[in-house]
């Protein structure tokens, strides 16, 4: 699976309260959640991105609450991939479970700037900053997790009997 898009970049400890504030958790509608995604730290988020774009974060991306509404909001906003130096553990498993592509790559997350165009090959772990021509390699996922991702998330993995 390949993702190509323009980058929107944030810092360390992007928490689930800023990804989707709890005041909007009275709904689980992906479109409605997406409309409030990132609004507490970046009012221009939606005007900056278009479908397929890539979000880059620092350390501990997605820390805080277990709300799956956070990766759902990012995915429904049209973001195709999140690259971060590291992910908070619940966000990490939620993203895998709902089929939002994520890659942990500290070097890439450090070097890539907002507005750059980036191409990532999720099977090989190869990330290329097309603006600077720099390349980075991320550790591939363990096979067990790769199977969930390939199935399109935990729902499909459960349906197809990959895990049970």
């Amino acid at each position: 699976m390949k993702c190509v898009g323009k980058v929107v970049k944030y810092g360390d400890n992007v928490d689930t309260d800023v990804i989707i504030p709890a005041r909007y958790l009275n709904t689980s509608d992906p479109k409605e959640l997406a409309s409030h995604c990132m609004e507490d730290i970046d009012k221009s988020f939606h005007s900056k991105i278009s479908g397929g774009d890539i979000m880059v974060g620092g350390e501990n991306f997605g820390c805080g609450s277990s709300r799956e509404h956070a990766p759902i909001a990012i995915k429904a906003s049209g973001i195709s991939l999140v690259i971060a130096k590291s992910f908070a553990r619940i966000f990490y498993r939620n993203a895998i479970n709902i089929g939002l592509a994520i890659v942990e790559c500290p070097e890439a997350a450090e070097a890539i700037e907002e507005g750059h165009t980036v191409e990532a090959d999720l099977d090989s772990g190869l990330i290329m900053d097309l603006t600077t021509r720099e390349t980075f390699t991320a550790e591939p996922f363990p096979e067990f997790i790769q199977n969930i991702i390939t199935a399109g998330g935990l729902v499909n993995a459960a349906k197809s009997g990959i895990i049970a």
């Binding site: 498993r93 067990f144 895990i163």
Partner: peptide, 17 residues
């Protein structure tokens, strides 16, 4: 703590990865 999909899988199978 886990997300909602893990909860769904847990309810359905009694298990979690």
């Amino acid at each position: 703590g886990v997300g909602s999909t893990d909860m769904a899988f847990g309810m359905a199978t009694g298990k979690a990865w």
